[in-house]
Nucleic acid binder design. Structure first.
Length: 271
DNA sequence: GAAGACCTGCTA
DNA sequence: TAGCAGGTCTTC
């Protein structure tokens, strides 16, 4: 679920709720495999008594910089979320100073809380974050041209550009009118330029709308305030199989590309 | 590349 | 009841 805009929304809300600057009084791990690579006991001991100095984000990773010098790296995977109130599927709870509790929630138990000395060990494997200045059009075009792969799996590859997931990849390709199975080195300058701009655009709009949530079931994305994100009505391709393309009226088609459900307009996005 | 693993819960 | 889900990882 959470891609760059959802993680950014959650990070901003945690800051707004005043999580930065608070001390961690206690840690409760409800699903032990949430934590790695340390044992739960060591993990809790390392966190207890430290202060969360800063909350930041890079790609889909969220980082809590601790006063101990270590960093908690959190990846929300498919269904992770945070809340200030307890609820079903809480996997890890931080009791913070000032009477605040922070609940990490994940229906599917896809774990990922890492305590590291240096976040670069993980971040160095990522390409530039899609919404930073380090992600430039030149870099993007070069990266696409020097490979010979289908464009969709390539823009989902976090080692090339960090932040896109399945929803925003489909949205960016729809916006740039590029078929998801086009080979990366077959794309011209204009097409790559359009795709670059579309990636920045769909993610920026996603952040502005505080993320995307599809449907309204309990497993969908929720931000820290329990809201489902305002981007749902803005989605043009993802999850719209069979529905008319907003640009040309022909039905959006759903196919599978590199094992991921993929939605596109066969008449706007030609091979 | 592709397929399986990690998991639960919703939908068809 | 089977299939599918916003994401990585590992192993062919």
């Amino acid at each position: 679920m959470p891609e760059l805009p959802e993680v950014e929304t959650i990070a901003r809300q945690l800051r707004a709720r005043g999580v930065e600057g608070r001390q961690i009084l206690s840690v409760r791990v409800e699903w032990p495999r949430t934590v790695e690579p340390l044992s739960v006991a060591v993990f809790c001991k390392e966190l207890r008594g430290t202060t969360i100095d800063r909350i930041s984000r890079e790609g889909k990773w969220m980082m809590f910089s601790l006063s101990s010098g270590k960093t908690v790296m959190i990846h929300l995977r498919m269904a992770g979320s945070f809340s200030m109130e307890s609820g079903p599927h809480d996997r890890l709870v931080l009791q913070l100073s000032g009477g605040l509790s922070l609940y990490y929630r994940h229906t599917r138990k896809f774990r990922r809380w890492k305590l590291v000395d240096d976040p670069q060990v993980i971040l160095a494997k990522l390409g530039p974050d899609a919404l930073t200045r380090r992600f430039t059009q030149n870099y993007f075009c070069e990266a696409m041209r020097e490979r010979h792969r289908m464009i969709k799996p390539l823009i989902l590859d976090q080692s090339i550009v960090a932040g896109l997931g399945n929803i925003y990849a489909d949205e960016a390709l729809w916006e740039a009118k590029i078929h998801p199975e086009r080979l990366s080195d077959s794309l011209g300058d204009a097409e790559l330029g359009n795709l670059f701009k579309a990636i920045k655009h769909v993610l920026t709009i996603g952040v502005r709308n505080r993320g995307t949530s599809l449907g309204d079931g309990k497993t969908n994305y929720r931000d820290v305030e329990g809201e489902s994100g305002g981007h749902r009505e803005k989605v043009k391709a993802y999850g719209r199989g069979g529905k008319p393309c907003e640009r040309c009226g022909n039905p959006i088609k759903k196919i599978v590309v590199a094992q991921r459900g993929t939605h596109f307009c066969p008449s706007c996005q030609t091979i």
